[in-house]
Amino acid sequence: MFEAKLTEGLILKKIVESIKDIVTDVNIDISPSGISLQAMDSSHVALVSLNLSMDGFEHYRADTNMVLGVSIANLAKVMKLADNNDQITLQADQEATHLKIIFENPKTERTTEFNLNLITIDSEHLAIPETEYSSVVTINSGEFSKICKELFSLSETVQITTNTDYVQFSVEGEVGSGQVRLGHNDSEKKEDQTILEVSESVQQQFAIRYLNMFNKASTLSSFTRLCLHQEQPLVVEFKIDNLGVLKYFLAPKISD
């Protein structure tokens, strides 16, 4: 038996919106301590990893580990039934064939229920090695979204360079070349801060198209954390207050 109730259902709605363009069918892993999922996009360029702790739920019960295979496209359709102020409850029996999703609005007394059919997904579960990232950049999520969006109109690829003084996003395309450079900024206004933690400089290239997809999660968190290490995938991390973390891994491009 699994049951989890999230008071701020909007968070779940936003999570589904933030991953639905990247992954299609996903195994959701339920454990007594929380909910997690890991999935790659169809072209194996990016990987999504979500971890939600039971502590963030108003009510949480999972007697055993369970795997719920879900079509994210269909889950997104069901989530459209939820009002932004709804509480969301997820329920599944042992050996379940469907996931029951309940939306409740205590103010308007409206309740919506949907039984989403589960599917069997044969997906690879990958082990992500512990990595000590040599460059970690914490940046306002709205600002990072805007930089990626605007640079994408100029080039498909961005080169990210870090050093102790700045992080630089540079592009080169038919239009020309240029860069956005952000220095360490620990101003009093927290939302303006850019925090650089660089032990070793990194220079890598990435497909901006994917960064734009990841940035849909910027509504979940005021800050985006970029973790970089030469020869390793970029991690774009969004912390979800009191609940968990949504991470996207993106393989770097290499010059032939």
């Binding site: 790659m40 194996h44 360029v45 990016a46 990987l47 690879e124 579960h125 990958l126 082990a127 992500i128 090695p129 690829t157 290239q205 497909a207 390793q232 995938p233 891994f249 993106l250 393989a251 770097p252 491009k253 290499i254 010059s255 032939d256």
Partner: peptide, 14 residues
Amino acid sequence: LIGQQDIKNFFLKK
């Protein structure tokens, strides 16, 4: 020319 690497190259199969 720039090639896109496969994310699976970086992780281990469980």
